[in-house]
Every structure is written in structure tokens, then in C-alpha cells.
Design a protein around this nucleic acid. Structure first.
Lengths: 225, 225
DNA sequence: GGACAGCCATGAGGGTTCTGGTAGTAGAGG
DNA sequence: CCTCTACTACCAGAACCCTCATGGCTGTCC
């Protein structure tokens, strides 16, 4: 079980690390929000223990950002003891549970275990761009009322584009995020998939959701074309 | 949404009742453990808010008892502020979450909502998808008025699919949840069972409840096909 | 106890779909 | 007009899934 601990107080961080390691978890520690976000993105943790007060990006934003990116790793938030409202907000931003500081190890481990046991991370939320919608949990995609059938790979590419709708996304980014990070084939494969997607989500509807930005990448229209 | 509140302090109980009712919940209150257990047994609540310190049967025992009887209604336990160990124990007896007294309303409601959103854990309550229904307790399954005979394993696979109807379920997930977690046989076994299920619940009715999502898993139609 | 039936796991064969690569073409930008 | 990038069609191998046959195991019934 790999756990990422994002906590800026070094004493707390190292205490938590030691404690969790003693319980058999593999632990990574990040001391600020930016670092935490990077680690979370680059690794596939089973759970994240996240302090709210952080330099750089705070816990809420980090959590919200990961959820936005489609990362539903269970998150246990650490809140200050007097911040009642924090807790409600934590749950709303997509945390799965929270713990009030100060806390004891027994509780932290119990809560973490409970979280992992549930494993039931709230399902990845559906995303949409205009009338184009896709639901990762159900692996469904469609425009308006019409269902569109996509293969696993096509779905992954489109999901990535939709999550970043309105932005230009470089081919290399798509490659890194949708294919295995160590994929070293022809980057042209991205063009191939863009073509396939256009054939399915644009051409039948006389739309142009996916724009080519020559020399930069592709952009999915925020309104779905 | 029906909520049962088991709390012996009348002031707290009525404050909670008023607050939850204001939020749109239908609330029943029990002032002791025995009463709480009876109410919980006789009614089908969406969630139970349960104090640990109770006259008669305490919160742990009440919770454990319900679980023992196959009732998996989500339970939110209320623990005393100094009882750290209580919390770990609460989770172990089968509570889904807990809240430390004193708590504020915002938090109670947020936690309750989170609990309800997550839904109950694998509950041996009857489940259905469209006209397809199965009752784990009675080990019965059928479509509309027609009974369908399933073997134990077939039933387990179908139950798992029905609980997650509308979602794509990976073969590995089925394997982990239906077979012993340490089962390390051929994942092909899942395909075999899907085939058998289709033969029993789909083909005779000219339905297609179970869809193959190539590269992702299987999905049971939320409406039963 | 022996025969039998039902359930389950396993393995192989075969069909279908997906995927990644290639190559030729079109089009944008300088 | 030339170059470079992106588009498109097509192909072959791989992956994936379906199906069926087989044999072990267990519990039941004579």
C-alpha cells in the first residue's frame, strides 16, 4: 500500500511517515502543495493524507485539482482543530474523509485502513463540453441524446481532451497521459486517434469540436464545437 | 431520506431532529439502545446516527448487532471527545464513519450527506436493475415474474454486477470481489461466468443486460437491459 | 460404499476488434 | 513554390473475448 503524505510541518510529516511505515505502508512525503501535486500526478498512490494548510497550493485546491484531472485516489484530509467549516468544505471538494488535528496514530491508521477498505472512491465524475458528454464510470459517451461508441483508447484520448477543454494540448502531453509513460512509438499515433475521434464525434454531427493548432497541438472547444 | 437518531441526551436528540428535519430529512429518534435496535429492525432507514454512550445497549453493540443481522444501513457514530480509541473501534464494529462530540450542525449534515452519497456498503438487501431482481438473503433471482435459477457463483457475480449497475466493472474487480481475494487462477473464469449469466438472464428474454466494454470490463444496464 | 449429478476451474481454439505503424497526400506557412 | 506539418487510408499483428470440452471435486441418493 503506497501512501502520499502532504504536510509542511516537518516534525509531523516525519512522525507520520515513521508511524505508517511501521504499519507496513510505503510512504512518500511532500512538504508543500506543488510538490505534492507533482508526486500525486506521477505516482499511483493507494491513498493520500493531505494537510489543508500548505505553502504553495493549499489542500483544498490540491484535492480539487486532482479530482478535476480525473484522479480519484482516496484522500484523507487533515484539518485544524477549530476549523469546523473546513471539514464540510473538505468533503465537498472531493476528500473522502478528514481527521482533526491533533490526532493519534491509532486513529490515523484506523481511518486510513477504513478508507482503503472502502476503496469505494466516489466514482469519477462525468465530464462534458457543450452537448458532448462522457461518463468515465459507465464508459459512456454521447452528443445530446445520441450515444457514441468509443474504444478504450479513443475514450481515454477524448476524456483527456475534455478535461482540458478550451486549452491547447500538445501531442506529447496526450502521448504521456494516455499511453504508458514509457511508450516510445511513433507520436503520429496521436494524429491517428484524433482522426478516429473526429470521425465519430464531429463528422456525423457536422461539428468541429477538435481544432488543430498547428505546431502546438489540439484544442477541444469548450462548448463542444 | 429517512434517518434514525439514537441519542439519550434529550436536548441533543431534539436539536438534531429539528436540524435534520429543516434539511429535509425524515427523522425518528430513539432514546436508548434497545429502542434504537427495534426501530432500526422494523424500518428501512437510509442512515443511522448513533451515539456510543447509551443506556441499555451501547452504540457498539447496536451497530455490531445490526451488521450481524445483515443490516448494512450506513451508520454515523457519535463519539466522546476524549475517546480516541473509541473511533478505531467504531470503525471496526462496522460503523461507516464517526463524529466527535461536540459537533456542529454543518459538519453533521455534511458527513451524513457524504455517507448517503457513498451509499451503504455491500448490503444483503435485495437489489434490482429494471425488471431484473435478486434477493441475496433468499438467494432468489428473477426477471419480472419469472424465476431464474443460479448457482452460488453465478449469483455472486450477478449480484456484484447489479450493485454496480450502470458502471463498467473490470474483470479484475469481479475476480477480487467474487472469488477469494487470493484467488490467482485464470481471469478467463470471469468470461465463463459472464457467458453462463447471459445464457440465463439475457438469451431467454431476448435481452442484452450485460454489455462487454472491450478493454475495460462489463457493464450491466441500469434498466436491466 | 458406489454411482451419479451438479458445480466449478482450466485450457485450447477461433473469431473479432483494436491498435500501432507506414506511406502517400493534402494543406498551411514562409 | 518549397518545406514542413498534419491528415487519411490501409494493413498486419496483437490483444481480447467467446465458446466449448474436459476433468476434478463435492454432496446426495440409493
Amino acid at each position: 500500500m503506497r501512501v502520499l503524505v502532504v504536510e509542511d510541518d516537518k516534525r509531523v510529516a516525519s512522525a507520520v511517515r515513521r508511524g505508517l511505515e511501521a504499519e507496513g505502508f510505503a510512504v512518500d512525503v511532500a512538504l508543500d502543495g506543488v510538490d505534492g501535486l507533482h508526486l500525486a500526478r506521477e505516482n499511483n498512490y493507494d491513498s493520500i493524507v493531505l494537510d489543508i494548510m500548505l505553502p504553495g497550493i493549499n489542500g483544498y485546491r490540491l484535492c480539487a485539482q486532482l479530482r478535476e484531472e480525473g484522479d480519484w485516489t482516496p484522500i484523507l484530509m487533515l484539518t485544524a482543530k477549530d476549523g469546523e467549516l473546513d471539514e464540510a468544505e473538505a468533503l465537498d471538494t472531493g476528500a473522502d474523509d478528514f481527521l482533526t488535528k491533533p490526532f493519534s496514530f491509532v486513529v490515523l491508521v484506523a481511518r486510513l485502513r477504513a478508507l482503503l477498505r472502502r476503496g469505494a472512491r466516489s466514482a469519477p465524475a462525468p465530464v462534458e463540453a457543450g452537448d458532448l458528454h462522457l461518463d468515465p464510470a459507465a464508459h459512456r459517451c454521447g452528443r445530446g441524446e445520441i450515444d457514441i461508441e468509443l474504444t478504450a483508447r479513443e475514450f481515454a484520448v477524448l476524456e483527456f481532451l475534455v478535461r482540458r477543454r478550451g486549452e491547447v494540448v500538445a501531442k506529447s502531453e496526450i502521448l504521456e497521459n494516455v499511453w504508458d509513460f514509457d511508450f516510445d512509438g511513433d507520436p503520429n499515433i496521436v494524429e491517428v486517434y484524433i482522426r478516429r475521434l473526429r470521425k465519430k464525434i464531429d463528422e456525423p454531427f457536422a461539428r468541429e469540436a477538435i481544432t488543430t493548432i498547428r505546431g502546438a497541438g489540439y484544442r477541444l472547444a469548450a462548448d463542444g464545437g
